[in-house]
Design a protein around this nucleic acid. Structure first.
Length: 744
DNA sequence: ATAAAATGCCTTTAGACAGCATGTC
DNA sequence: CTAAAGGCATTTTAT
């Protein structure tokens, strides 16, 4: 039986009978010679035991496999060997699914290595796109789950060539917001392609493996030993029972790590804590820096923008500490990550951004908090997550062991030890039942995947993890019914006399745009008011009110002002202002705040000013703008389906560009130029260069006088018009001439 | 009388995927 | 049944 086989793998590990394996032995397992050669070239002579276990299953012969082993214990290498071998032997395409855009980039860089064998690798996320045909030329396609789900919906012709799907971090099946997407992708493909699931250690990996009809390899083995403990008032209780004494405060653990010449990573549960602890620690560890290190750190800090949060970051950074959370901009994040890897930054205090994202190991990991505030109040952080944080301890090649230490404050240290150190991680549960994900998936099944009636819908649902796990579709069927009714009632689909589903244009477009049907409905319902009174604030408020947009939180002290603002602007809004006792009230104020921010943005309010006014960080602003860009486009696309008025459509399109770039209408022309964003465009405009013509006719030397315009920018603009400036000689010449003259 | 310290009440709280067509300051 | 830290205003204490 399958189960016995599973058990045998597990037992083999437990008994310590699994030995490591030489790379050469892979040959007998059918691994292509060329792969072995490159592995050796990379310096890999021997495989880690779990890697060997994984490859000894029938995964190389095409059998599905779930590999549940700790982070950094070599899951990726297994994936690489399996997929490259498959491509070399059988051809076909591999899709490599990741949960984060940052991980897509990381894997892309890693897999580039295999281009030596002529293997073509592409990455596609919401940021970096590529036409569908273009992707057809590649052997390995790295994508986020959502992006790939979207590609599936678009029915690209190359989808049929996929014969291997690798789901990295497959335990995200259990993620409340995003698990359903991954689950549906796997349900779609499990009879068409081989599946390799890479998972953290979870409570019920067997269940996932059974669902996928896969072998299971589990192990706790790590290349760097991990030593875990709990710290309580100066006493460090190691899991083996030994006790080590330190000064009472937990920061002594950080200082101790530095004394050993090592780095530390501190996990906390709020951004504010991350910033506070970073600054506190900075004062205490500065003395460990060498002069050259201080100089380099100073340089890094000087290179950062001067936003309120960056001021604090700079202060910490010059002292060898950084904080890391989602409020930071992308530049800041990657600077910090790189500098920590180099060893320049000694300590990072981080929110969970670092527990699941890019791999950033440190000798000692300190977990200050094990509770977190959520929508449902104060909750214990799941064991799975804490263990992922702990898993960041120990740098391969640098450390013999890594240490992960949980700080006990009010909780009993023995409770923390039992729960997080010795305890088993939670089981994974299907999140298909999450209504928001499910309705979007039901729509896609009908509009994009040819599900023609309720019976077929239920048949498909029987392939899901949800069904496998519960063996009972009743609840899901009930939900599906109400969703189908919702879709029918709102003209996403039609249902004919024989109860057959018929996709309607609104449904098809909604699914392609990857919108929540509720968002699409909100848009549709607003079109009448929008035509009567098209205005930015009303539109922004509409976007902010959809479930696809995460609006800002409103602080107590802002409530009154925002309500006044809403009443002042009432005539522009497409919805009524709710009463304060209404449950929608707080949500409404958040939407209003978001809309007001966006209005400031398109009126060219300085970004730092925006950050200060709304008490948000760069990363938050960036995320809002990213969402609005997508939703604004979607709004326009849906409006096109409803007999659009040309002038309204034109208004929306202009507004889209304005919000994308954060400019007033008069800058729309300048903004089309390369390297010209809201700041430079405004500077040019104020200097009298109001349009493309002015730029073309202007002398380069004149343009250079404008703030923010350097020779590099001019060069890019000239290139845009097909004029090359190859040498420095010419650059000087250009300053005198105009772009216009080049055309003669 | 004035300033510092203590007290108490109130407020706040993690993260980040998606379209489409090419490039910010 | 459910946290903890920071901000702010008020009250108490010290000089």
């Amino acid at each position: 039986m399958k189960l016995n086989k599973l058990k045998s793998y597990i037992n083999a590990f437990l008994l310590g009978m699994v030995m490591s394996m030489k790379v050469d032995e892979l040959k007998s397992l059918g691994v292509d010679e060329r792969i072995l050669r490159l592995l050796r070239e990379r310096g890999i002579e021997e495989l880690y035991p779990p890697q060997a276990d994984a490859l000894k299953t029938e995964v190389l012969k095409g059998k599905n496999l779930v590999l549940a082993i700790p982070t950094a214990s070599g899951k990726t290498l297994v994936a690489e060997i399996v997929m490259i071998n498959k491509i070399l032997r059988e051809g076909g395409k591999t899709v490599y699914l990741v949960p984060l855009k940052a991980l897509a980039e990381e894997k892309y860089k890693e897999f580039k290595f295999w281009e030596k064998l002529g293997i073509r690798i592409a990455m596609t996320t919401g940021d970096y796109d590529s036409t569908e045909e273009w992707l057809g030329k590649y052997d390995i396609i790295i994508a986020t789950s959502e992006k790939f789900d979207s590609l599936l919906r678009h029915k690209s012709p190359w989808i049929k060539d996929i014969n291997l799907v690798i789901a990295d971090e497959i335990h995200l099946l259990g993620s409340y917001d995003r698990g359903a997407t991954l689950e549906m992708i796997l349900a779609h493909l499990d009879d068409k392609a081989q599946i390799l699931g890479l998972s953290a250690t979870v409570g019920n990996a067997e269940e996932v493996a059974e669902w996928l009809n896969a072998d299971l390899v589990m192990s706790e083995w790590r290349p760097v030993a991990l030593r875990k403990g709990v710290f309580y008032h100066g006493e460090l209780f190691w899991e083996d029972g030994s006790i080590e004494r330190f000064p009472t405060q937990w920061d002594s653990l950080v200082i101790d790590a530095l004394k050993k010449g090592k780095q530390a990573l501190v996990f906390v549960n709020t951004r504010r804590s991350a910033e506070k602890e970073a600054l506190l620690l900075a004062g205490k560890i500065q003395r460990f820096l060498t002069k050259p290190e201080e100089r380099k750190l100073k340089q890094l800090a000087d290179g950062l923008d001067t936003t309120p949060t960056n001021q604090k970051l700079k202060e910490a950074l010059t002292k060898g500490v950084a904080f890391h959370h989602a409020g930071l901009g992308r530049t800041e994040r990657s600077i910090i990550e790189d500098a920590f890897r180099e060893g320049l930054i000694k300590v990072i205090t981080a929110t969970p951004t670092l527990s699941a994202g890019v791999n950033l190991p440190a000798y000692r990991v300190i977990i200050r908090d094990t509770k977190r505030y959520s929508n449902f109040g104060w909750v214990d952080i799941p064991v799975l997550e804490i263990q992922q944080m702990m898993g960041r301890a120990g740098r391969p090649k640098y450390d013999i062991e890594g240490q992960a230490i949980i700080i006990a404050k009010t909780e009993k240290p023995e409770d923390l030890m039992k729960r997080y150190v010795l305890g088993k991680p939670e089981k994974l549960f299907s999140m298909l039942s999450n209504e928001a994900s499910f309705r979007s998936q039901v729509l896609a099944l009908i509009t994009n995947f040819g599900v023609g009636n309720f019976k077929e819908l239920v048949n498909f649902l029987e392939r899901t993890f949800y069904y496998h796990q519960r063996k009972n579709l009743e609840a899901l069927e009930g939900k599906a019914k109400s969703i189908v009714y919702f879709l029918f009632e709102n003209e996403f689909i039609d249902i004919d006399l024989n109860d057959q589903f018929m996709p309607l244009p609104l449904g098809i477009r909604t699914s392609q745009l990857y919108l929540d049907p509720v968002t699409a409905k909100k848009f549709k319902d607003a079109f009448e008011k929008l035509e009567k009174n098209p205005n930015p604030l009303g539109i922004f408020q509409l976007l902010a009110s959809t479930p696809d947009m995460s609006s800002l939180r409103v602080k107590r002290k802002e409530q009154e002002d925002l309500l006044d603002y809403a009443y002042e602007m009432e005539e522009y809004l497409y919805q009524n202002i709710p009463y304060w006792e209404d449950y929608k009230f707080e949500k409404f104020l958040g939407e209003t705040k978001t809309a007001k921010l966006l209005l400031d943005w398109i009126n060219e309010v300085n970004d730092v000013k925006i950050l200060e006014t709304y008490e948000i960080d760069t990363g938050d602003l960036y995320r809002i703008l990213e969402l609005v860009d997508w939703l604004m486009y979607s709004l326009i696309e849906l409006y096109k389906l409803f007999d659009p008025k040309p002038e309204v459509l034109d208004f929306l399109k202009k507004l889209h560009i304005r919000v994308k770039h954060g400019v007033r209408e008069e800058l729309l022309e300048l903004i089309t130029l390369p390297m010209i964003g809201r700041k430079r465009a405004r500077a040019l405009y104020n200097a009298g260069f109001k349009g493309i013509d002015d730029i073309v006719r202007a002398k380069a030397s004149e343009l250079l006088k404008v703030e923010g315009i350097g020779i590099g920018v001019i060069e890019k603009i000239y290139q845009h018009f097909g004029v090359e400036l190859p040498t420095n000689e010419k650059k000087k010449k250009v300053k005198k001439g105009t772009l216009d003259e080049f055309f003669k």
